[in-house]
């Protein structure tokens, strides 16, 4: 009984052909870059599809990227910005979500609506004034500027997802704690926060990726050599070395590889987070 849906009208082989074909299409460009990053210039041009062999193996591109650009610095910057923004979004977001979901107070719905505007209206549209503000605060070319803007960018969605989740927490848990005289802050930090961990994972996924990949705000708020993120650093590096194929391919690979490793480790949680977040 359970197999009837696949037997017709599409045969199982046809389904695998379509999905396999599309998977190939999705992976081919990335694989091609990774393969050729480890080849000499001659190897890259003579046979782009071949794997590196003893004759064509060459890692001069990587050596050059690491020597000519501050790649490790960019990487550290991206990591700092992403992790601190993420921590702030999750903490502030969970606190606000708890307040909105748990307490009845005047203006609750209005405040929720105000915060929700940021889900649909991109923060980029306020760039002119954001830049002005960051200049006024003397935060231009600092990672702090990026962290503040990304935190503001991530909060609306975080609050929406987390308050949906908090609303589902059984009342008895909180009431029991209150009867024992536990304070509201203790309830939040010791009972609620551990309970919403699965939702936190979902929010982390939605929040982290756009922050790590963003070009716009690093380009405008922190273009200085010391504060470049990986995305901006690679963009600028490639602009400079556009004809040096080894370096270009190596810098692209250096940007891709950390994400691939993270994805290999976390893909299951990530996709579960995505699909469960979407069903809500």
């Amino acid at each position: 009984m359970k197999t009837h849906k696949i037997s017709q009208p599409l045969s199982s082989a046809g389904v695998h052909l379509v999905l396999g074909g599309y998977t190939l299409l999705a992976l081919f460009p990335i694989m091609l870059i990774l393969i050729n990053a480890f080849k000499s210039r001659a190897g890259i041009f003579d046979d782009p599809l071949a794997l590196p062999n003893a004759e064509t193996f060459f890692i001069g591109g990587f050596e050059k990227v690491l020597a000519k650009s501050h790649f490790m610095l960019y990487f550290g910057n991206s990591l700092t910005v992403t992790l601190i923004s993420l921590a702030l979004i999750l903490l502030f977001g969970a606190m606000a979500a708890w307040a909105l979901a748990e307490y009845k107070f005047r203006g609750n719905r209005l405040l929720a609506l105000y915060l929700a505007i940021g889900i649909m209206v991109p923060i980029r549209l306020g760039t002119v004034s954001i830049l002005e503000l960051i200049v006024k605060l003397d935060l231009i070319n600092t990672l702090t500027a990026l962290i503040l803007v990304y935190t503001a960018q991530g909060l609306p969605l975080a609050i929406m997802i987390l308050s949906e989740f908090i609303a589902q927490i059984p009342k008895e848990l909180k009431e029991a704690a209150r009867c024992d005289g536990v304070g509201e802050f203790k309830i939040f930090f010791q009972i609620i926060l551990p309970l919403i961990r699965p939702a936190v994972a979902t929010v982390a996924v939605f929040t982290m990726i756009p922050v790590w990949n963003d070009l716009w705000f690093p380009l405008i708020l922190a273009p200085g050599e010391e504060t470049q993120t990986v995305t901006l650093g690679v963009q600028q590096f490639i602009g400079q070395y556009v004809t040096d194929w080894n370096s270009v391919l190596a810098s692209l690979s250096l940007a891709v590889i950390p994400v691939l490793i993270m994805y290999m480790i976390f893909s299951r949680q990530l996709i579960r987070g995505l699909t469960s977040g979407a069903v809500k």
Binding site: G93, Y114, S129, L155
Partner: peptide
């Protein structure tokens, strides 16, 4: 309630909502 809301509302207002309005 105010303490729970303040950090999020503050950061969101200063770096997202108000700049948008100002724009």
């Amino acid at each position: 309630i105010a303490v729970f809301l303040a950090p999020a509302v503050l950061v969101y207002s200063v770096f997202s909502a108000l700049p948008l309005l100002d724009t």
